[in-house]
Amino acid sequence: MELGNNLYNARKKSGLSQEEVAEKLGVSRQTISKWELGETLPDIRQSKKLSTLYHLSLDELIDFDLDVQEIQEVIDKTNEEISDKVDWTKAWGKKYPILVNYQQRVYTSAYANELETLLDDLQKKYGYNELDAFLVLKDILAVVWKSRRANDK
């Protein structure tokens, strides 16, 4: 996504009009419009003011993705009690059907035993509690997945 679209989406997400942003930055509404259309770019000082106004870091503003931002907000608002009520296999199974039916084909106990060993190892070696060890292992799996996908390209 280009910077102009990022600026537009961040402004909309903040609930501000072009006029309001222009007033706060001391520029014209047309300047804001040109930035959002990608005709011109804000300088670094103006970019910093925009990031402060939109409650984003400069990196977040440059890479602003409305979908990612909305997902992050849902994650931030979800507590353990709500999370425990969600059938995550069913929820993700809509996107990845394998999650709904792999248990009938895969002998999961063997894999579960190996994962238990890895979790215990993380707890003993690094002093992680059970949840932290699980999250670290999940993150390691995600890194391996991304690496394999990158190698396939």
Rank of each mutant, 00 (worst) to 15 (best):
I140H: 06
K12Q: 10
K13P: 03
D76P: 02
K13S: 15
P42E: 07
N9P: 11
T40N: 10
A133R: 06
L25T: 09
L37Y: 01
G38W: 03
M1I: 06
L56I: 04
E116A: 13
A133W: 01
Y107G: 15
N6A: 15
V86P: 07
D43P: 01
E70Q: 12
G38T: 02
N5W: 03
G38M: 05
R45Q: 08
V143A: 10
I98Y: 12
W35I: 08
K94A: 12
I75N: 08
E130S: 13
L122H: 01
F64Y: 08
N129K: 10
N79S: 09
S147Y: 08
L58H: 01
G93A: 06
E114M: 14
S28L: 02
A10S: 11
H55M: 05
G15R: 03
V27Q: 00
K24Y: 00
E19L: 06
S47V: 02
D84L: 07
L3I: 11
L115I: 13
W92P: 09
Y128L: 13
R29F: 00
Q30F: 04
G15A: 03
V106P: 07
Y126P: 04
A142G: 10
K90W: 14
G93T: 05
A22Y: 02
D59K: 06
P42R: 05
I62R: 10
D84F: 05
S109K: 09
D65P: 05
E60G: 10
R11M: 01
Q103P: 15
E19A: 11
R105L: 14
K48G: 04
L131I: 14
T78I: 02
A91R: 07
I98C: 12
Y102I: 13
T40P: 09
D76K: 14
N101F: 14
Y128P: 04
K24F: 00
K95S: 12
L137H: 13
V86G: 05
S51F: 00
V86S: 06
E114V: 07
S28W: 00
N101W: 08
D65G: 01
